[in-house]
């Protein structure tokens, strides 16, 4: 047990010393990251480093390997080191009050990234920077409504994993956006489990069910991976995704930009991995003259179109997605 602790300590020290190699900086920020659970998470870490460097901030990143206890230890280490601010991407929503209270007592502002916590006391953190998955769905819907115009449009929807919150919210936002346009209608909706394989399989059956695909006007996928699978299925059935069929999805991973550059997809709504940028700005403003940021900073859910696709692909392909 004590050996394990020692090892943990050593790991943290290493991680911290490596990450703090930026040198004499104005601000030092400790970032307790969840771990490398997905490509998006890896990109978030890379982007955070880039954003810190841009602002001359010394960023210390501690990888919690998906464990809350590691995150709590990391925060305590940050407090002991007297960092200027702590970023926390909480792995779970509860159980943070005690350690955040300690940070508050040490007068270190805490910013929540990407996910929020359940706590009655919202003075425990300065602000939360998160995306809004309902809004992402809404943006996708509005893009489609604008692109389609007045003609009738049969939409196929590839849902995320049944019951997951992004799937529920991205559906909700999209439905809200197209509710005002009676010419837009979702005719089939199935889950593709957020994966390419399932996206492809579901699209194959959609094509059979919808008159060989001739009546399909648009495909909305809850993430880009399913959309990439769907594009393959459509192409193999002799259809032309991106041209005859409008393809819109969410996430903005590198491969969808490749598809857009090749004219096979039309739009993707970004779930930005840049949560740290707005957080740094909020902390810097707060440190400078005590400016209180809003309790919730919503990241941009920007629509990317084929015209910038090639450049975006180049910019993103090395972020670790």
């Amino acid at each position: 047990m004590s050996f394990k602790k020692l090892l943990m300590g050593a790991v943290y020290t290493c991680a911290l010393s490596v990450a703090s190699a930026a040198g004499a900086a104005e601000l030092t920020v400790g970032f307790s990251q969840i771990g490398s659970e997905s490509g998006w998470r890896a990109a978030e870490t890379s982007v955070s480093k880039i954003e810190a460097e841009k602002r001359g901030i010394d960023l210390k990143i501690a990888d919690a390997q998906q464990k809350q206890e590691n995150q709590i230890k990391a925060i305590r280490t940050f407090i002991a080191q007297g960092v200027d601010a702590i970023f926390l991407a909480p792995v779970v929503a509860t159980g943070w009050d005690e350690v955040l209270e300690e940070a508050k007592d040490a007068e270190i502002p805490v910013v929540l990234l990407d996910r929020t916590i359940d706590s009655k006391d919202d003075s425990l953190y300065l602000t939360a920077v998160t995306s809004d998955t309902v809004y992402e769905g809404k943006v996708a819907g509005e893009y489609l409504a604008k692109t389609v115009g007045d003609r009738d449009c049969k939409i196929l929807e590839l849902q995320g994993t049944v019951g997951s919150s992004p799937a529920i919210n991205r559906k909700k936002g999209f439905d809200e956006a197209i509710a005002a346009h009676p010419n837009l209608k979702i005719v089939r909706s199935q889950t593709g489990d957020f994966t390419r394989t399932k996206g492809k399989e579901v699209m194959e059956s959609f094509i059979k069910a919808e008159n060989g695909g001739k009546d399909i006007c648009a495909v909305y996928a809850h993430n880009d991976d399913m959309q990439i699978g769907a594009i393959q299925a459509l192409k193999e059935a002799g259809l032309k995704p991106g041209k005859d069929i409008i393809m819109v999805s969410i996430d903005a991973v590198p491969d969808i930009f490749k598809a857009m550059a090749e004219g096979e997809a039309n739009a993707t709504v970004e779930l930005t991995p840049n949560m740290a940028g707005p957080a740094f700005d909020a902390v810097m403003a707060f440190k400078k003259d005590g400016t209180q940021p809003p309790k919730w900073i919503q990241t941009e859910s920007k629509v990317y179109l084929p015209d910038t696709a090639a450049a975006e692909y180049e910019a993103r392909k090395n972020l670790g997605y």
Partner: peptide
Amino acid sequence: IAASDIRGADANNAGL
């Protein structure tokens, strides 16, 4: 076959 089908390898989801 699964990799060939999606022209890629998804370590998290292939064969899940």
